[in-house]
C-alpha cells in the first residue's frame, strides 16, 4: 500500500466527502492502484521534456475588455436552494 488510511481520510476531508466505514478499504485499494500507475509512469526519463501546461497546442486566447449585460438577478438566483434579500443564503460557515 502506498496510501495510508490516514491519507485517505485527509483527502476525503479536503474534498468534503464522508466515506462509510465499510467502504474505506475499497477506496484505499482503488486510489492505491491509481498511484501505482503513476509510479509506473515515473519510470520514464522526462528530463528533456517540458512540463505540459495544456494539452492543446493553442496559446493566447483572449477577448477584448467589453461589457455585456449579465443574466439578471432573478435568473442568477433561480437555481438557488435558499434566497434572502436578493442574495444566495448559505448555511453557517465556521
Amino acid at each position: 500500500m502506498t496510501i495510508s488510511l490516514k491519507e485517505l481520510e485527509h483527502v476525503a476531508e479536503l474534498a468534503r466527502l464522508s466515506i462509510p466505514e465499510n467502504e474505506l478499504k475499497a477506496y484505499t485499494c482503488q486510489l492505491d492502484d491509481i498511484l501505482k500507475s503513476i509510479e509506473k509512469l515515473k519510470e520514464l526519463d522526462t528530463d528533456n521534456v517540458e512540463p505540459t501546461a495544456h494539452i492543446l497546442p493553442v496559446r493566447n486566447v483572449m477577448r477584448g475588455d467589453i461589457v455585456r449585460e449579465g443574466i439578471g438577478r432573478e435568473d442568477a438566483l433561480g437555481g438557488a436552494p435558499d434566497v434572502e434579500e436578493g442574495q444566495f443564503k448559505v448555511p453557517k460557515i465556521v
Binding site: 477577448r63 467589453i66 461589457v67 455585456r68 449579465g70 442568477a76 436578493g86 442574495q87
Partner: peptide, 21 residues
Amino acid sequence: NSKIFCFCTTEFGGKPNTHVC
C-alpha cells in the same frame, strides 16, 4: 471595464447579484 473571464461589468456598488452571468 469587464471581469477577468467574462463580460460582466466590474462597476462597484451595484445591487447584489446584478453583475453576474
